[in-house]
């Protein structure tokens, strides 16, 4: 059983993608399909993740918010460096993010942005750092990757889709596209310790798949780590509303304004 290929594979310089283990721990994303595709069952911590998308509003934040909500309850900060718009506090709070853990950083110049990013990642006091760099070359990204490793920080870079063919040292690279039927299509371009995958369909709009229990008042359940194992069909009412109000008033309040989770949204005619 000694053929040329086996000999070659025994060579220590040969690196096989499937054999590497993610170095740091993983954080469940809250989307079962995505967790299944990621090695370790979640977002890689202590590394860079690049999210590439062309259009705004296709779910680029909804994809990471369940994980961020969870991190925000663990005590460390979540830093947003140079966000392109206002991160809207009521929406984040409704997703279960502890707003007291959010740090907004607005640098003036591009060089300050990279400096602030590196400081935040390296300090070890941020659990996640989100950034929207206008341009970043490979050298800068490598620096950030090392900083994220040093500070055990989840570095999230949101970049334009045109960066798809650039080289990058990030541990995970995803491309987001809007699919048909309000779905979001996720392509895994690069997965450290796993296989790239194309065409993952995630329903980010429908609360049904938002299966992360976001408990406002009991942080213990938020860190229990069981959310990805929940059945996909279970509806989790957001706890920030449900815990204080009776169930009936909750449904009454929501009905005219929000789509029913079971029903595809139908076009609405504007009022005249």
């Amino acid at each position: 059983m000694d053929n040329a290929l086996d000999n070659l594979l025994r060579e220590p310089r040969i690196w096989r993608a499937g054999e590497t283990q993610p170095r740091q721990g993983c954080l469940p994303s809250g989307y079962a399909e995505l967790d299944a595709a990621l090695p370790g069952g979640g977002w890689p911590q202590g590394a860079l993740t690049e999210l590439l998308h062309a259009d705004a509003g296709i779910g680029e934040l909804r994809l990471v918010l369940p994980a961020l909500a969870r991190l925000s309850r663990a005590g460390r900060w979540i830093a947003l460096v140079a966000p392109p718009h206002i991160p809207y506090a009521p929406a984040l709070a409704a997703q279960g993010v502890d707003l007291s853990r959010i740090l907004l950083i607005h640098p003036r110049a591009g060089s300050d942005t990279l400096w602030a990013l590196e400081q935040a990642m390296r300090s070890g006091s941020c659990a996640a750092v989100l950034a929207w760099p206008r341009k970043a070359d490979e050298k800068q990204l490598r620096r950030l990757q090392l900083a994220a490793e040093a500070g055990d920080c989840w570095g999230l870079l949101f970049r334009d889709e045109s960066a798809r063919n650039e080289r990058s040292p990030a541990a995970l690279r995803l491309v987001l596209q809007a699919g048909e039927n309000a779905d979001t299509r996720v392509d895994l371009l690069k997965v450290r310790g796993g296989q790239p995958r194309q065409g993952l369909q995630l329903d980010l709009n429908n609360p049904r798949t938002r299966s992360l229990p976001v408990a406002t008042h009991s942080p213990a359940t938020a860190t229990a780590g069981t959310e990805s194992a929940l059945p996909a069909g279970r509806v989790e009412p957001p706890a920030s509303r449900g815990s204080l109000q009776p169930e009936s008033s909750l449904t009454q309040m929501r009905l005219p304004l929000e789509p029913s989770p079971r029903r595809r949204p139908q076009p609405v005619q504007p009022l005249h």
């Binding site: 900060w77 991160p87 506090a89 984040l92 707003l99 007291s100 959010i102 740090l103 907004l104 950083i105 607005h106 640098p107 003036r108 300050d112 400096w115 602030a116 400081q119 935040a120 300090s123 006091s125 941020c126």
Partner: peptide, 18 residues
């Protein structure tokens, strides 16, 4: 961390959210 950031970027460049 936040003091370092404020020292270089300015007082109002680092804020919270509520």
């Amino acid at each position: 961390l936040s003091e370092r950031l404020q020292a270089r970027l300015g007082e109002h460049a680092v804020t919270g959210l509520d």
